[in-house]
Simulated scan of single mutants.
Amino acid sequence: MPGPRERLLEAAKELTYAQGVGVGVDALLKSANVARRSLYEHFGGKDGLITEVLRLTAAEDEAAYEQTMRAAGDDPRERLLSVFDWLGEVIEAPDFRGCRYLGAELALADRGHPGHDVIRRYRERLHDLLERELRALDHPRPAYAADQLVLLIDGVLAVGAIRPESHPAAAARQLAEQLVGGQRSGTRGS
């Protein structure tokens, strides 16, 4: 059986996604089946637990983006567009509740909460991942286009939580196609 630290992390991962980061400490402790003392010993309190959950899930999600893009092959354009196909699958999952990071950013009113820094770094790494592919496409403005793709991703995850029947991933993919251009890797447009 996992120890108290692992049980707290798993409970917090599930409950903060299902109910938001405002979930009560008592609910976390009950779900993890641990004493309050374990929370403070391992994480220094709820803020430390939330920060560690954000750090762990960010690493998992970043790996999922990378895996999705690798599975799409060698063409940077297809690798970028595959993200939106994958997001379409993500938002169709029965337990999909939106973007964990957007939800946390909005709910963590204290701008000094360490979770904000974890989310900022995660978003920077996602941006860098997209920008590398855009550079491989010789996009004229790769950093700006990566900003736009992140905006589309955020939109898919937000709309997917409240209006999944509107197929936001498919719509965002069409916009992303325009953004990344119709040219294939290794060819140049006029």
Rank of each mutant, 00 (worst) to 15 (best):
Q67T: 11
T57N: 06
S185D: 10
R173E: 01
S190Y: 03
A145K: 05
S185W: 15
L28G: 01
R141K: 13
F96H: 04
M1L: 12
D110W: 01
L29V: 13
G73H: 09
M69E: 11
V83F: 00
L28I: 11
G186D: 09
T57Y: 01
D74R: 12
G160N: 06
R37A: 13
G103N: 13
T187C: 06
D138Q: 15
K13M: 10
H127Q: 09
D95C: 00
L8F: 11
A32C: 06
A161L: 13
E92W: 00
E105T: 14
I153M: 10
W86N: 04
P2H: 11
D74W: 04
Y101G: 03
S166L: 15
A172V: 10
R97W: 02
G182E: 11
A109W: 05
L39W: 10
L134Y: 06
L175T: 12
M69N: 00
A170P: 00
R123E: 11
A93D: 14
V23C: 04
E60Y: 10
L39V: 06
Y144L: 13
D47N: 11
A143W: 07
D26C: 02
A11H: 03
Q178M: 14
A169T: 08
G20A: 08
P164R: 14
G44D: 13
A93Y: 01
E41L: 11
P164V: 09
A146R: 00
T68R: 08
A146Y: 01
I91W: 04
T68Y: 07
N33P: 00
L81Q: 05
R55M: 08
H42E: 06
E131I: 03
S166E: 14
L106Q: 14
G48M: 08
A12M: 04
M1H: 07
L106F: 09
E10K: 06
D110T: 10
L81T: 07
A109C: 04
R77Q: 09
L39F: 10
A64G: 12
E131T: 11
L151G: 11
L81G: 04
A11G: 04
I119F: 02
R120S: 07
I162S: 13
S185Y: 14
T68D: 02
R37C: 02
Y40Q: 04
D75Y: 07
V150R: 15
L54T: 05
L54H: 05
L9D: 05
W86V: 05
S82M: 06
A71S: 14
A59W: 02
E177L: 06
R163H: 13
I91E: 05
M1T: 05
D117T: 11
V159R: 09
G115C: 01
G155I: 08
E62D: 10
V156K: 01
A171P: 00
V83L: 14
R79K: 15
A176L: 06
Q19M: 07
D61E: 12
L49A: 04
